[in-house]
């Protein structure tokens, strides 16, 4: 009997992983944000980088980010099985085993850090190693299930790539790199909490503390406003540094006025008003948040591209 069941499961085609299932372990959508912001950090830096070195560095930063995604899926497999949003990930569906995800995550982490060190420098490689450690150990293993500020901590991990890109080019960290980090860091909480206000999630089922559940929706609205105001200060301060310029400043001014207006609208509403118009203000704010980060980093890229023509920068 046991033999029959073993042989049946061995040939269960549904559980056989394709290449795409292993790729899905690396969280490709998160990787795209990592690639974009790391690329901007690298290009806006004052030191030119050989295109092949730049390509390799961006790939290894992305690989490091992907590896930390695989380790996150390994650790969170128990709660991923419980939540609708994550139930179709490779481990909950049984296509990839937990041990495989762990091995892939560790192997790719080491490969990415060592290769980034060889391609670029020790500072960039050290920052990548710290990012992986921070995301996997500090966020995933320790604080995600312990505090409703988990989004803030997770946001910090996602904010490192432009700093690593900058370090690839310059071999160091500067005020510009720190402000690029701070931009993504302060953007993450309003972005995710706005989503949490209008999407029914089952974090409570998985016992992951979300601010909307632990402190209520009214407090979450005020938190969104607080982080949005802090974000505006960071975004405008970045415009005053060497990588800013009139184009960036104009984009930042318009976007931050819109973002603050949206955050005030959310903070003033109650749940009744929210239900009445099907979370219109929250949905608008979330959509704007997607454009917000892309356009800020895009404007920095435009400044850097126009600088050699004497048009970008201050």
């Amino acid at each position: 009997m046991t033999d029959t069941s073993t042989s049946t499961s061995a040939f269960d085609a549904e559980k056989e992983a394709g290449f795409g299932d292993y790729f899905a372990l690396l969280k490709p959508r998160v990787m795209s944000l990592v690639v974009f912001t790391a690329l901007v950090g690298l290009i806006v830096a004052p030191v030119p980088v050989h295109p092949v070195v730049a390509l390799a560095a961006i790939l290894f930063i992305a690989l490091g980010g992907g590896a930390s995604g695989a380790l996150n899926m390994w650790w969170d497999a128990d709660i991923d099985r419980l939540m609708q949003r994550t139930r179709k990930r490779p481990i909950p569906t049984g296509k990839v085993e937990e041990g495989e995800a762990f091995a892939i995550g560790i192997a790719l982490s080491v490969l990415a850090v060592v290769m980034l060190f060889l391609a670029a420098n020790a500072v960039a490689a050290g920052l990548l190693a710290f990012t992986i450690f921070f995301y996997v150990v500090i966020y995933t293993m320790w604080l995600k299930r312990a505090t409703p500020q988990n989004i803030v901590i997770g946001g910090a991990a996602g904010a490192f790539p432009p700093m690593i890109g900058w370090a690839v080019a310059t071999g160091g960290i500067s005020v510009e790199a720190v402000l690029m980090f701070a931009l993504t860091f302060a953007w993450t909480p309003p972005h995710f909490w706005a989503l949490a206000l209008f999407v029914k999630n089952d974090y409570a089922k998985a016992e992951v503390p979300m601010l909307t559940v632990t402190h209520g929706r009214a407090i979450t609205r005020r938190h969104i406003l607080g982080y949005t105001l802090a974000l505006a200060v960071v975004a405008l301060a970045l415009g005053l540094t060497s990588i800013g310029g009139p184009i960036y400043m104009a984009v930042a001014l318009v976007l931050n006025v819109m973002f603050i207006k949206g955050a005030f609208a959310i903070a003033r509403r109650d749940d009744a008003a929210c239900e009445a118009d099907n979370h219109l203000a929250e949905r608008r704010f979330f959509k704007l948040s997607l454009a917000y980060l892309f356009l800020h980093f895009g404007a920095l890229l435009v400044e850097a591209t126009l600088a050699p023509l004497g048009l970008g920068g201050w």
Binding site: F11, A13, E16, A17, G18, F19, G20, Y22, F23
Partner: peptide
């Protein structure tokens, strides 16, 4: 079999 197709995709991908 579907299983062969997935194994091939894995091998080619790698």
């Amino acid at each position: 079999h579907e299983l062969h197709r997935r194994r091939l995709s894995r091998n080619v991908g790698l």
